[in-house]
């Protein structure tokens, strides 16, 4: 288990949650049931879509953009990744940070998703207490010839229903893993410096993608 799976299943995680759009009306659905329904639906799509399997990045990106974004709370994710420096950012800066961080996560992980093949996901049942608004849904990726990978989603219940604010792959949070890097960027160049670094990174990723 390592970075590879950490990335790949993180992407998978992002995408699995993505299909939630269809079941958005079921806001009362328990988060674990939600994760399972979505998981099955998205796995199905991935297995069937030949374009995506053949490396159609455009299509994959569109899918991710359209399906995932409504079900992830990127503002909250960014806030967690930025940590205490979040408070010193203006509203405009916070918007910029969320936007750039979203682009980074979506692009990185949708590309990694292309490596996805014949994994199976088990969602562990969740005991949801009355009035609970913050839960962790635990799942396991079962793959042939390798040990299961732990993949946990943290979800928070807000006005728009349950939304994912963290994905933890084998104990590594995709969100807080950026915390030290972001803090170092802010120490060096302030909030604007961090925004610029994210923009630069995103541009580099686009350039690398189109060069291929």
């Amino acid at each position: 288990m390592g970075i590879r799976n950490f990335i790949r299943f993180g992407v998978l995680g992002l995408c699995l949650i993505a299909g939630t759009g269809v079941v958005a009306q079921q806001q009362e659905t328990a988060p674990d049931i939600l994760v399972r329904n979505v998981t099955e639906r998205v796995l199905d799509t991935l297995r069937r879509d030949k374009d995506i399997q053949n490396g159609n990045n455009e299509k994959l990106m569109r899918l991710v953009e359209a399906e995932i974004l409504p079900h992830f709370n990127f503002n909250r994710m960014t806030q967690l990744a930025v940590g205490r420096d979040w408070r010193q950012a203006s509203a405009a800066q916070q918007r910029q940070l969320s936007e750039e961080f979203r682009i980074l996560l979506v692009r990185t992980y949708s590309n990694a998703l292309l490596g996805y093949k014949d994994q199976r996901i088990e969602v562990k049942p969740l005991r949801l207490a009355q009035g609970e608004t913050d839960v962790t849904v635990r799942t396991q990726i079962m793959q042939p010839g390798a040990r299961p990978i732990q993949l946990d989603y943290s979800l928070e219940k807000g006005t728009g229903g349950w939304k994912v604010y963290d994905v933890v792959v084998a104990g590594v949070s995709l969100v807080t893993n950026y915390r030290e890097t972001f803090a170092a960027e802010v120490r060096q160049g302030g909030i604007d410096g961090l925004v610029r670094s994210l923009q630069t990174k995103n541009r580099a990723n686009v350039a690398a993608g189109s060069a291929k």
């Binding site: 970075i3 590879r4 950490f6 990335i7 790949r8 692009r107 990694a112 690398a208």
Partner: peptide, 10 residues
């Protein structure tokens, strides 16, 4: 995973 890490990491 090499490419994914390159893309993800600042």
């Amino acid at each position: 995973s090499d490419k994914a890490i390159e893309q993800a990491a600042l």
